[in-house]
Amino acid sequence: MKKIILVTLAFIASLNAQEIYTTFNIEADKSANLAFYSSGIIDKIYVDVSSSVKKGDKLVELQNDDLKASLKMAKATLDNAEVILKFAKKDYDRQVLIKDLIDEAKFDQYDLAYKKAKVATAQAKANLAYQQALLDRTVISAPFDGIIFEKSVEVGDVVSGMMLRTILKIQSKTKRKLIFEFDQKYWKSVKVGDSVRYTVNGDNDNYTGKISKLYPHANSDNRKIKAEVNADGFVVGLFGEGYILVPDSK
């Protein structure tokens, strides 16, 4: 009943509007090709084609036991450096209180030990961050909520950071954008917010939407201008046709 009402309202609106013929392709609202920029051997694959994932989910992992061990060592080094810094600061603070009563050279020794401890701690923190970055490069995580629509590796495959290779392809799960094209002669008529009535190939239903974005250039090859309409649930790659409804007052 709701669909009938929407189509009826669109038909009534079209009686008082100019109809501009348009065709479109359906694309995912978000899409990304995922690849490693680190070399190694595929150790674990956590997803497959059609897997739904959340942003941050671990998708694929290289063999990285050596890097995990290096990270643990870096953490231990930082812990040790922070302990030394803690006691060096205590010694320094005590010497500050009696600075006027002790030999200046002796005070300088405590001051130097404190400064060295701070430098060592800073270096340990930097090394820990570096080891963490190396480990992170061995894992591909989901950049956004979506669904995996292509997988091109298996466990045991070798990848090289010197030759980037797409490992997975991910797209938004249901959100779509319809990329409409219309004749450039209507560039002054069509505006963001204009209504669109359309059908999708292989689907007998009629749909309506509104233009959410106009591309700021015309294609010199086919003399067309593109516009986007937000939609939901369609299969990516399908195409269709329709009409942009432009009020006669424009």
Rank of each mutant, 00 (worst) to 15 (best):
75 K>H: 13
147 I>F: 02
239 F>W: 14
181 E>K: 00
71 L>A: 13
99 K>D: 09
33 N>G: 03
122 A>P: 00
54 K>G: 01
18 Q>H: 03
171 Q>F: 03
91 D>W: 08
142 A>I: 04
87 F>W: 14
79 D>M: 12
169 K>C: 01
105 A>N: 14
225 I>E: 11
1 M>Y: 07
135 L>G: 08
164 L>C: 01
122 A>L: 07
159 V>C: 06
141 S>F: 07
36 F>S: 04
102 I>L: 12
130 Y>I: 10
17 A>S: 15
190 V>S: 05
135 L>A: 08
109 Q>P: 04
41 I>K: 15
90 K>A: 11
49 V>M: 06
60 V>K: 02
118 K>T: 02
247 P>I: 12
215 Y>P: 06
68 K>I: 13
53 V>F: 01
130 Y>E: 13
101 L>Q: 15
65 D>C: 09
119 V>G: 01
55 K>D: 00
190 V>T: 01
33 N>D: 11
228 E>W: 11
220 S>F: 10
165 R>W: 05
117 A>H: 09
230 N>F: 07
233 G>Y: 02
121 T>H: 10
140 I>Q: 09
176 R>T: 04
65 D>Y: 13
12 I>N: 13
246 V>C: 03
188 K>C: 05
6 L>R: 11
47 V>I: 01
57 D>R: 05
104 E>A: 10
149 F>K: 05
163 M>H: 11
8 T>F: 15
132 Q>K: 15
91 D>H: 08
205 D>G: 04
102 I>N: 11
123 Q>C: 08
20 I>M: 05
159 V>Q: 03
18 Q>R: 06
158 V>L: 15
17 A>H: 01
220 S>Q: 12
121 T>Y: 12
86 K>T: 09
30 K>Y: 12
21 Y>H: 15
26 I>C: 03
86 K>D: 14
17 A>F: 10
6 L>I: 11
244 I>M: 06
1 M>A: 11
160 S>R: 13
92 Y>W: 00
154 E>S: 06
72 K>M: 03
50 S>G: 00
134 L>C: 03
208 T>K: 09
110 Y>C: 01
82 E>K: 13
49 V>N: 03
143 P>C: 02
173 K>R: 06
136 D>R: 08
86 K>L: 14
162 M>F: 09
157 D>S: 11
54 K>A: 09
176 R>H: 10
125 K>Y: 06
144 F>W: 04
201 N>W: 00
199 T>N: 12
132 Q>F: 09
139 V>C: 07
17 A>G: 06
81 A>S: 14
145 D>W: 04
239 F>R: 14
148 I>H: 05
191 K>Q: 15
212 S>M: 13
28 A>S: 12
127 N>C: 07
40 G>M: 10
181 E>H: 06
147 I>S: 00
94 R>G: 12
196 V>R: 03
210 K>G: 04
